[in-house]
Amino acid sequence: MQNVTLQVEGMSCNHCVNSIEGAMKTIGATAKVDLAGKSVTVQFDESKLSLDTVKTTIEDQGYDVV
C-alpha cells in the first residue's frame, strides 16, 4: 500500500470532503481530506492503481491537484 499526500485547491466544505472520499472509494482507494491544510492523503494499492489515476479522479470531481 502506498500513502500519498496531495495538495488540492478548491475544497471548502463537507460536500467537498464527501465528494473526494466517495470518489476514492469507487476506485478502491481511501482518502482523508484536510480542508484547513488543503490536502488529501490517499492510501492505495500501487499494483492496482496509479498515482495519475488518483489525481485524475480528484480532478474529475472539480478540484485542482497542484
Rank of each mutant, 00 (worst) to 15 (best):
G22W: 02
I27C: 00
Q43C: 10
D34M: 07
Q61F: 06
L49F: 08
Q43A: 14
D60N: 14
T57I: 07
G28D: 07
L35S: 06
V66S: 11
Y63K: 00
L51G: 13
A31M: 07
K48Q: 13
G37K: 14
V54W: 04
G62C: 07
E9V: 12
V65E: 02
G62P: 03
D34E: 13
T41S: 02
V8M: 09
T41K: 05
E46H: 07
K25F: 07
V17L: 03
C13T: 11
C13A: 09
A29L: 07
D60E: 14
S50W: 08
S12A: 12
K38A: 13
N18K: 14
F44T: 14
D52W: 12
S39E: 13
T41V: 11
G10Y: 09
Y63D: 06
K48C: 12
D60L: 09
D45C: 10
Q7V: 12
E46F: 08
V54A: 01
S39K: 14
N14A: 10
V65W: 00
K25H: 03
L51T: 07
M24P: 04
K48F: 03
D45M: 01
K55G: 07
V66R: 06
M1N: 15
G10A: 11
G37C: 09
G10K: 13
C16K: 10
A29E: 06
K55H: 12
V8Q: 00
T26A: 10
V40S: 04
I58R: 02
E59V: 06
V54G: 01
V65T: 11
V54C: 00
E46G: 08
N18P: 01
K32S: 12
T26V: 09
M11A: 07
Q7I: 11
S19K: 08
F44D: 05
L49C: 02
V65C: 00
T30P: 02
G22I: 05
Y63T: 13
D34G: 09
